[in-house]
């Protein structure tokens, strides 16, 4: 098992290198350079030339790439010229906010989706199933940002139940700060979960229906296992398996979703930072974030495979 995981991680290295080259070249291809806008407007062309040479901007691209990688390994992702702060610090701070929001959304998603999917599958074709399916279809049809904007408008502005911006009330301290943080992620988390449940409910529902008709469930019935235990020991457990494996991939979805959620809720996380950086052409931050998102995606996939390897004896990896 450890061998396989290690091998998978080793395979990830060339993938990450390729990704970093791509990200680096894209950043290079973008108009302007790190000095644009941050240089004393009175500097002469020669001085700028000198500064650029000093910072290696005339080196061949692979030289520059190498320098960038070396810095990367030292935890130096460069300076954000918009915030005038080390990118690593900047991201670190935002990453924690995003982590809170994403984890909360994920927990909420599964808490809502699994019982709904199980219930719909169990009572396939009946009224509750139809209601749940209509809910999933309707939600699926509405773009995510529309849900966010409508949710924000109704619950934030009209009803005024939830805060509409930020990650914490500026005056909160101690325990109050914790509850204020929670209060701030409540609405975006709920709305994110509302959208995120759709796939999982459908997935769970069809898994339950498949399991219900499977031969091993018939075997369980012929053993005299009562219906409720059949659901508990056989159907629920077996249906959960592909969904548990899906968990790793859903990290990807959450990161993508955070771009919308955080921007619309002005929640200071990585997603909002990403959009801000694009608006301000803050290339160092953009490259760092794209690289980070890419690595997270790869890790999510790996995580999915590992989970599946643990829970499913058929693909248990030695």
């Amino acid at each position: 098992m450890w061998k396989t995981i290690l091998r998978r991680i080793l395979i990830m290295i060339p993938e990450i290198i390729l990704l970093s080259i791509l990200v680096f070249l894209l950043a290079k291809a973008m108009p302007g350079d790190p000095f644009t806008g941050s240089i004393n407007p009175r500097s002469s062309a020669a001085q700028i030339q000198h500064l650029k040479e000093l910072n290696g901007l005339y080196d061949p691209w692979y030289q520059q790439y190498w320098n960038w990688i070396v810095h990367l390994f030292h935890g130096d992702l460069g300076q954000s010229y918009q915030y005038h702060e080390a990118v690593s610090n900047l991201i670190g701070e935002r990453a924690i906010n995003t982590l809170w929001l994403s984890a909360f959304t994920m927990v909420l998603t599964y808490l809502i989706a699994l019982p709904l999917g199980l219930y719909a599958g169990k009572h396939e074709g009946k009224l509750p199933d139809t209601v749940i399916r209509v809910y999933t279809y309707v939600t699926y049809c509405i773009p995510f940002f529309v849900i966010l904007v409508i949710g924000l408008w109704i619950f934030g502005y009209v009803l005024n139940w939830f805060p509409t911006t930020g990650s914490v009330a500026p005056t909160a301290k101690g325990l109050g700060m914790l509850s204020s943080r929670f209060f701030h992620i409540l609405l975006p988390g709920l709305l994110g979960a509302l959208f995120g449940t759709v796939n999982i409910v459908q997935y769970m529902r069809s898994e339950v229906i498949d399991a219900k008709r499977s031969d091993y469930v018939r075997t369980a019935r012929s053993k005299g296992v009562p219906e409720k235990d059949i659901y508990r020991h056989h159907i629920f457990r077996n249906s959960l398996l592909p969904i548990a494996a899906f968990g790793g991939y859903s990290i990807t979805g959450l990161l993508n979703g955070s771009i919308f959620t955080e921007t619309i809720f002005s929640y200071p996380g990585m997603g909002m930072l990403f959009i801000d950086s694009i608006n301000y052409r803050d290339y160092t931050v953009i490259t760092a974030l794209v690289l980070l998102f890419g690595v997270m995606n790869l890790l999510g996939t790996l995580l999915s495979d590992i989970i599946l390897g643990i829970v499913d004896p058929r693909i248990r990896i030695e």
Partner: peptide, 14 residues
Amino acid sequence: GMIFQDPLSALNPL
């Protein structure tokens, strides 16, 4: 007691 045809699918894989 019951015995069914397809012995692979008749057992819970997990």
